[in-house]
Simulated scan of single mutants.
Amino acid sequence: MNESTQEHPSNATATVPGDLGWHLGMVLRGYQTRFETAVAEMPAGIRGFQVLSTVVHKDPPNQQALGTHLAIDRTVLTYLIDTLVKAGVVERIPDPSDRRARKIVATDSGREMLADHEERVAAAEADLLSGLAEPESLALASLISRLAMDVHRAQPGSSPCEAMDHLP
């Protein structure tokens, strides 16, 4: 306990400007470590999971929309999709509205793999939040979601993958 919290026990959770970044960084590190472990068997790891999850849950109309949603460069996305196609978890089909474009769809095997990995990710997230009471973890998830959407609206091209890649 530092000097200021010893003098003012009610301030035990008070922060100074700049602490938010440290706190977010520590939470992100803890999340990243658990997430990497949970999806270690997924082709292409975290990014493979994100692509497969987006394909299944968001159903983007084509590969370009998928890349835009995930803020992944199209060249990188092509390699990721190639890896997932080779693993048999997604396939490219012609976009019904534009035969020149390709839609990425999950295979049955991909859907099964995603369901298995989502259980692992949910357990990893529960582990990370285990120090909080359930109402606190639900409130935190809601607040972070709201904040993330505000940041995304203000900086629509921002890549959360890139942010994780550049952690010190």
Results as ranks from 00 to 15, higher is better:
residue 2 N to A: 11
residue 4 S to H: 07
residue 5 T to K: 14
residue 6 Q to H: 08
residue 6 Q to E: 15
residue 8 H to M: 13
residue 10 S to D: 14
residue 10 S to V: 12
residue 10 S to F: 13
residue 13 T to K: 08
residue 15 T to E: 10
residue 17 P to S: 13
residue 18 G to V: 09
residue 19 D to P: 05
residue 20 L to W: 09
residue 20 L to C: 06
residue 22 W to E: 14
residue 23 H to E: 11
residue 26 M to R: 13
residue 26 M to S: 06
residue 27 V to P: 00
residue 28 L to A: 15
residue 32 Q to H: 14
residue 33 T to N: 07
residue 34 R to G: 12
residue 34 R to H: 04
residue 34 R to Q: 10
residue 35 F to V: 07
residue 35 F to G: 04
residue 36 E to Y: 01
residue 36 E to N: 06
residue 37 T to L: 07
residue 39 V to Y: 08
residue 41 E to M: 06
residue 42 M to C: 09
residue 44 A to M: 11
residue 44 A to E: 11
residue 46 I to C: 06
residue 46 I to E: 07
residue 47 R to N: 08
residue 48 G to H: 09
residue 52 L to E: 04
residue 52 L to G: 03
residue 52 L to H: 04
residue 52 L to K: 03
residue 53 S to Y: 12
residue 54 T to K: 01
residue 54 T to I: 01
residue 55 V to F: 05
residue 56 V to T: 13
residue 59 D to V: 08
residue 59 D to S: 12
residue 60 P to G: 06
residue 60 P to F: 07
residue 61 P to R: 14
residue 62 N to W: 04
residue 65 A to I: 08
residue 66 L to K: 03
residue 67 G to H: 02
residue 67 G to C: 03
residue 69 H to A: 10
residue 69 H to L: 13
residue 77 L to I: 03
residue 79 Y to A: 05
residue 79 Y to I: 00
residue 80 L to S: 00
residue 80 L to D: 15
residue 81 I to K: 01
residue 82 D to C: 00
residue 84 L to G: 04
residue 87 A to Y: 05
residue 87 A to D: 07
residue 89 V to L: 04
residue 92 R to V: 00
residue 93 I to M: 05
residue 93 I to W: 01
residue 94 P to N: 05
residue 95 D to I: 01
residue 95 D to M: 01
residue 97 S to M: 13
residue 97 S to D: 15
residue 99 R to I: 09
residue 99 R to V: 10
residue 99 R to H: 06
residue 100 R to G: 02
residue 105 V to R: 07
residue 106 A to G: 08
residue 109 S to I: 03
residue 112 E to Q: 15
residue 112 E to S: 13
residue 116 D to K: 15
residue 117 H to F: 02
residue 117 H to N: 14
residue 117 H to P: 00
residue 118 E to G: 04
residue 118 E to Y: 03
residue 119 E to N: 15
residue 119 E to V: 09
residue 124 A to K: 04
residue 125 E to I: 11
residue 125 E to H: 07
residue 134 E to L: 13
residue 134 E to C: 01
residue 136 E to P: 00
residue 137 S to E: 06
residue 137 S to I: 00
residue 139 A to F: 04
residue 139 A to E: 11
residue 140 L to F: 12
residue 141 A to K: 12
residue 142 S to D: 14
residue 143 L to P: 00
residue 145 S to Y: 10
residue 145 S to K: 14
residue 146 R to P: 00
residue 146 R to S: 15
residue 148 A to D: 10
residue 154 A to C: 03
residue 156 P to S: 10
residue 159 S to H: 11
residue 159 S to W: 10
residue 162 E to Q: 13
residue 162 E to S: 13
residue 163 A to E: 10
residue 164 M to G: 01
residue 164 M to Y: 11
